[in-house]
């Protein structure tokens, strides 16, 4: 499942995790910390600058059973979107 950049930009994520500036494993630690505050079915957005996050957040989603929606890069930051599935 992958959404287009326009579709992703249209999402108003109720929870945004700012992991900009932190290196591996910071972004997934931040995602893990924030996911309990997201209601099932809602979207969480992760902001990161570490390029490994592009692969790591999808892998984290697969393991945790959440739906990874897609990502885009803008103004030096990576925006990643996932839907909490359980």
């Amino acid at each position: 499942m992958s959404a287009s950049v326009e579709e992703l930009k249209a999402i108003a994520s109720p929870v945004v995790v700012d992991a900009r500036g932190v290196s591996c494993p910071g972004p997934i630690l931040a995602a893990k910390k924030q996911i309990p505050s997201v209601t099932v079915g809602n979207v969480m957005e992760v902001l990161a600058t570490d390029s490994g996050t592009l692969k790591d957040i999808p892998a984290w989603c697969r393991k945790m059973g959440h739906d990874f929606l897609g990502s885009f890069e803008e103004a030096g930051a990576i925006h990643l979107f996932l839907r909490k599935a359980k």
Binding site: I28, L29, K32, W60, K63, M64
Partner: peptide, 8 residues
């Protein structure tokens, strides 16, 4: 270790 724990 921390990565694995973050993946439950």
């Amino acid at each position: 270790a921390n990565g694995a724990a973050a993946m439950d």
